[in-house]
Simulated assay, not measured.
Amino acid sequence: MTFILAHRGSAGTHPENTMESFIAAEKAGADGIELDVQLTADHEIVVIHDLTVDRTTNGSGYVHEFTFKELSKLKANYHSTHFFKKKCRIPALREVFTWLCSNSLLCNIELKNAVTRYRGMEKMVIDLIRDYGLEKRVILSSFNRQSLVHCLEINPDIQTALLYNEAFCRPWEYAGTLGASGLHPKLKCITDKDILASMEYGVAVRPYTVNKEKDMKRLFSINCSAIITDYPGRAYRLREQIQY
Results as ranks from 00 to 15, higher is better:
I129W: 02
M124K: 15
Y118A: 05
Y132A: 05
M121Q: 14
N144A: 07
R130T: 12
V115P: 00
N108A: 08
S141V: 09
S102F: 00
R137V: 12
D127G: 05
S102T: 15
D127Y: 02
K112L: 08
L134A: 09
A114S: 13
G133E: 11
R117T: 07
E122A: 11
C101D: 06
G120L: 15
L105V: 03
L106R: 13
M124V: 09
R130S: 07
N113G: 00
G133W: 08
L105C: 05
R137Y: 10
R137K: 15
V115L: 14
I126L: 11
L106T: 00
S102V: 01
R130H: 14
Y118H: 15
V138E: 08
R130P: 02
V138Y: 12
I139K: 07
I109C: 00
R137S: 15
M121V: 14
S102R: 12
R119D: 10
G133N: 10
M121S: 12
D127E: 06
S142N: 09
G133I: 13
A114N: 10
Y118N: 07
E135N: 14
N108D: 09
Y118D: 01
V125L: 05
I139E: 09
S142T: 10
N103P: 09
S104A: 06
K123P: 00
C101F: 01
S141W: 07
D131V: 04
D131G: 05
